[in-house]
């Protein structure tokens, strides 16, 4: 079959957008990661691997490992909570479904900082939870300004992003697949494992990536809810750009994060034969 070699004109608009908004900035960051910094914080145009060497320092590696671990744990928590939610929303119909979807999306329409401060009001040492505990004569819970506060903030904030792709792929499933599996002798659990799960693999992966990657770069939540006691990759990177005036080092960290993203996407592509476009 002969394929047309030229692109339709609408594709050109998209291509221009893609190049200026994605490829160009990325190339700039990539390039900057190989430059050096002067004492005063401006950029020296000389090629150097110093930034990447610096990142191999155990301090930065420790931050990287910590951040990856945090993002991983938070993602798994999101999966544990979000998957049943997505499953329920896909199975239920009528008012409950509409209500459920609205509740899921309300956080999207609220300002992010407001939501975080909402958590502070809830879990702060004089917050609603502690006031309840005090009223019941129980000891205070200090969730905020600890790792747990950060976990909670991450899961709370990113949960809808995980639920939506999973819900979407569950919705697209032929409802008769489940019945067919039962009919042929599978128990509920076997049906779930052998029929449902393999067919929503893509949704699961997309949802996890949508959540894992941004979490790697998070710094507002660790600052506001974690008491800024621990620096994660996002914070270290932002500090390079704004406080410490070491743009090349910051770019190196940014490049590293981008490479992680590309690696995750490549993994996904290999794992599911149909690829990204099919899943969405």
């Amino acid at each position: 079959m002969k394929t047309t070699q030229y692109l339709p004109s609408s594709a050109w608009a998209f291509l221009i957008w893609l190049i200026t908004m994605t490829l160009l900035p990325f190339t700039i960051i990539l390039g900057m990661s190989f430059l050096e910094r002067t004492e005063l914080g401006t950029i020296l145009f000389s090629f150097s691997l110093r930034n990447y060497q610096q990142l191999l320092d155990w301090v930065y590696l420790k931050v990287l490992v910590k951040t990856v671990w945090l993002a991983l744990m938070a993602t798994l928590s999101c999966l544990a909570i979000g998957f049943p939610v997505a499953y329920y929303l896909a199975r239920v119909q009528g008012t409950m479904k509409s209500l459920g979807l609205i509740l899921l999306f309300i956080p999207f329409w609220t300002n992010f900082i407001l939501r975080i401060y909402g958590i502070v009001s809830l879990f702060g040492s004089n917050g609603i939870l502690n006031q309840l505990l005090m009223f019941l004569g129980l000891p205070k819970a200090s969730i905020l300004y600890t790792r747990w506060g950060v976990y909670f903030g991450l899961v709370y904030n990113y949960l809808p992003f995980l639920v939506v792709p999973i819900y979407s792929s569950l919705e697209k499933l032929d409802p008769f697949l489940r019945e067919a599996a039962f009919d042929l002798g599978a128990t509920r659990f076997q049906t779930f494992r052998k029929v449902i799960l393999p067919n929503i693999k893509e949704g699961l992966f997309i949802g996890s990536i949508f959540v894992f990657i941004p979490m790697l770069g998070e710094y507002v939540i660790p600052d506001l809810l974690g008491g800024a006691k621990e620096a994660f990759l996002g914070k270290v990177m932002v500090e390079q750009f704004f406080i410490l005036q070491d743009w090349p080092l910051g770019s190196a960290i940014a490049t590293m994060l981008s490479v992680l993203l590309l690696a995750a996407l490549w993994l996904q592509n290999r794992w599911t034969s149909k690829g990204l476009a099919h899943a969405i």
């Binding site: 004492e39 005063l40 930065y60």
Partner: peptide, 19 residues
Amino acid sequence: EDLGDALPRLSRMWTELKS
């Protein structure tokens, strides 16, 4: 005042403190 070349080392210490 500006710390000149001591700044990167200080910032590394700060990162260490926060990890």
